[in-house]
Design a protein around this nucleic acid. Sequence first.
DNA 1: TCGTATAATCAAGTTACTTGAAATTAGAGA
DNA 2: TCTCTAATTTCAAGTAACTTGATTATACGA
Lengths: 159, 159
Amino acid sequence: MHSREDLEKEVMVAARDQGIGSVLFRNALGRKLGVNVTDNECLSFLTIQGVATPSELAHYTGLTTGSTTAMLDRLEKAGFIMRKPNPKDRRGVLIEVNKKWMAAAGPLVAGIQSAHRELLGSYSDKELIVIADFLKRFTYNVHEHTKKIEEDTPSTLSR
Amino acid sequence: MHSREDLEKEVMVAARDQGIGSVLFRNALGRKLGVNVTDNECLSFLTIQGVATPSELAHYTGLTTGSTTAMLDRLEKAGFIMRKPNPKDRRGVLIEVNKKWMAAAGPLVAGIQSAHRELLGSYSDKELIVIADFLKRFTYNVHEHTKKIEEDTPSTLSR
DNA sequence: TCGTATAATCAAGTTACTTGAAATTAGAGA
DNA sequence: TCTCTAATTTCAAGTAACTTGATTATACGA
């Protein structure tokens, strides 16, 4: 019923839809919790990573370091994050998410997390290995080509 | 070597890393092409979807419809998108990406696309079916819980 | 220890965003 | 058909967030 070509396309489309869905989910979460898109992306990154430096957050959010300072001021004032001294570099700080954010976001992500766990439970070990392998290699491609874009000389696109 | 628990966790981590990687890739692309984060997310969505209404773009980007109008004005002025009348609804318009954007972004995404195609080529039909199935069911979860968050009564989180 | 690079912050100016209202059309019900 | 309400987009005024360039402090290589 499915040609090889269709099958490959199906995976590509499914991967893209997944990306779109994730953005929509995070936006819904941010709206619900009353944080703007940028702050929400930052908090979502921190929730996954645990801690990060302002530089890393600037890179992830696509902001300049100046805007990142302002964003962290906002989030700190709101009680969602904490600045801690970086023991490895006295110039910098480490950012941590506070319990206030976890307590607010936790209940909203609990449902999807358990749904994902249930989904994973429906696969055999062998299948999970294939899935993990695919995701890792896919992500590797993304990283490699991100580096390539960042390294290449600036584009000449005129606006 | 791997417990079942480890295996499931590995997939979850891989899925999250993939999401983070995608954001970083899109940001790199936007920086390179000189468009801000919001405009870039919008263009990336349009590139995938082909066409969309301003309302859909507002929802995807997390903007109000007012900001979306301003964003579309920017992108139209820059020559990246086009407003077309919506034949199905004379109140609204349809947004399309112009060749100018495709020509600018195309070369930067060509590499990753062929890398992804090569990656898919390394899997058997059976494996691709598992991967596609996983991605679809994962995305289904995301959609369902996005709806749930949007439907629930507003949060009482005070800032 | 000198010079350069990196991390974060700050202040001034600019850009993008929100809010609330207006214009236009859709769609449902009398 | 004719209202009435809802939906889609736009607009103008005010606010919030972002960029740029400079500053402070520390790291790190020569």
